[in-house]
Each structure stands twice: as C-alpha cells, then as structure tokens.
Measured scan of single mutants.
Amino acid sequence: KSPLTGYVRFMNERREQLRAKRPEVPFPEITRMLGNEWSKLPPEEKQRYLDEADRDKERYMKELEQY
C-alpha cells in the first residue's frame, strides 16, 4: 500500500471527527473546511502528521526493496 502524505493523514483523522459533529455538511464542504484548517495549523502540530508520513514512506520503501 502506498504511503500517505501528512496532509492526507490529517484529512482522514479530522474528517471523521467533523462528520460526527456536523453530519449535515456536504463532503466537498468538509474537504474545503479541513484544507483551510490544515493551512492554518501551526508547524509544530503539522509535524506529527509529517513524521507519521515519513515513517510510512520508509516502510513502503523497505517493502519495495523486498519485492
């Protein structure tokens, strides 16, 4: 499975939280809201997602080498 970027990891995590709080909001609007939230997120909060993405990318590269 391909590695996910930090942005995609953030979107996946927050999308479920936002949909639970506001189920009436259409999917494209949720994506737009989360995109704005990501762009305003402080670098230190973004870093968690970026670090997870880096670890996932390393895992993926190792799997490719073994293939």
Results as ranks from 00 to 15, higher is better:
T5H: 09
K57D: 12
K62E: 11
E29F: 01
E58T: 11
Q17T: 06
Y49F: 08
R22T: 14
E24V: 05
F27Y: 14
P42C: 07
R15M: 09
E63A: 07
D56R: 02
Q17A: 08
Q47M: 06
A53K: 00
P23G: 07
N12G: 04
L41N: 00
G6D: 01
Y49A: 02
Y60P: 15
R19W: 11
P28R: 14
Y60H: 14
E65T: 08
Y60L: 11
E63V: 05
S2C: 14
E63K: 08
K57H: 15
L18Q: 02
Q66H: 07
R59I: 12
F10Q: 05
E45C: 01
P3Y: 13
Q47P: 01
L50D: 14
K46A: 04
D51Y: 15
K1M: 05
P3E: 14
V25S: 05
T31F: 00
I30H: 03
R32C: 01
R22C: 15
T5W: 02
P23C: 02
E44Y: 01
K1C: 00
L64K: 15
D56M: 03
R55G: 11
E63H: 08
R9A: 10
D56Y: 00
M61C: 11
E29V: 04
E29Q: 09
M11T: 10
E63L: 03
K21Q: 14
L4G: 02
P42N: 04
A20H: 08
L64E: 11
E45L: 04
S2P: 05
Y7T: 07
K21M: 14
T31R: 07
L64F: 15
R22H: 15
E16H: 03
E44P: 06
E16A: 07
P28I: 06
E44D: 10
P28M: 13
M61R: 11
K21H: 15
L50S: 15
L18G: 02
R59M: 10
E65Y: 02
T5R: 05
M61T: 10
R9M: 09
P43W: 02
Q47C: 02
M61V: 13
F10C: 01
R59A: 12
F10M: 01
V25M: 13
Y7E: 13
E58D: 08
L4S: 13
M11C: 14
E16T: 06
D54L: 13
L41W: 00
E44H: 09
R32K: 09
Y7I: 11
R9F: 06
R9P: 04
Y67C: 07
K46W: 00
P26M: 04
E65Q: 07
L41M: 05
E63Y: 03
F10N: 05
L18I: 09
Y7M: 10
S39Y: 07
L18W: 05
R15P: 02
V8Q: 15
E45R: 03
E65G: 11
P42Q: 01
E45F: 01
F27A: 15
P28L: 11
G35D: 15
S2K: 04
R32W: 03
Y49G: 02
Q66N: 14
R59C: 07
R22D: 13
L50H: 15
E44M: 07
F10D: 03
L4C: 08
A20V: 10
E13N: 02
T31E: 14
R14H: 04
P26S: 13
E44G: 08
F27L: 15
F27K: 14
P28D: 15
E65W: 04
R32F: 01
R59P: 12
P42W: 00
L18M: 11
S2M: 14
R19L: 13
P43M: 09
R55W: 08
Q47V: 05
R22S: 10
E58V: 09
R14F: 03
K57F: 03
D51E: 05
E16K: 06
Y49D: 02
Q47F: 10
E65P: 07
Q17N: 05
R48Y: 05
P3H: 13
R22V: 08
E58A: 11
L41T: 01
L41R: 00
N36D: 07
Q66W: 06
E24N: 13
Q47E: 09
R59S: 13
K62S: 09
E58Y: 10
E29S: 03
V25I: 14
Y49L: 02
R55E: 13
R15G: 12
F27Q: 14
T31W: 04
E45M: 08
G6C: 15
R14C: 01
R19I: 14
P43F: 08
R55F: 08
P28N: 14
M11E: 12
K21P: 00
E63F: 01
R19C: 11
K62G: 12
L41S: 01
P43D: 13
K62Q: 10
K46E: 02
E65H: 13
E44S: 07
R15T: 15
L18N: 01
Q66S: 10
I30A: 10
R22I: 13
V25Y: 02
R59W: 03
L18R: 00
F10P: 01
K62P: 11
L50C: 15
Y60W: 09
L4E: 15
G6V: 00
T5N: 08
D54H: 10
R32M: 06
D54M: 12
E44I: 05
M11K: 03
L64W: 05
R14K: 06
M61I: 14
P3Q: 02
P26R: 06
L50T: 14
L4N: 15
P3W: 11
K46I: 00
R14Q: 07
E58M: 03
K57M: 10
K1D: 01
L41P: 01
P28H: 14
P3V: 10
R59Y: 11
P23R: 02
K1V: 02
P26F: 01
T5M: 11
P23L: 06
F27I: 15
E63N: 06
P26G: 07
R14P: 00
S2H: 04
D54F: 05
L18E: 12
R9W: 01
E63G: 10
V25L: 15
L41G: 01
P23H: 02
E44V: 07
E58S: 10
R32Y: 00
Q66F: 03
E29K: 02
A53L: 01
A20R: 11
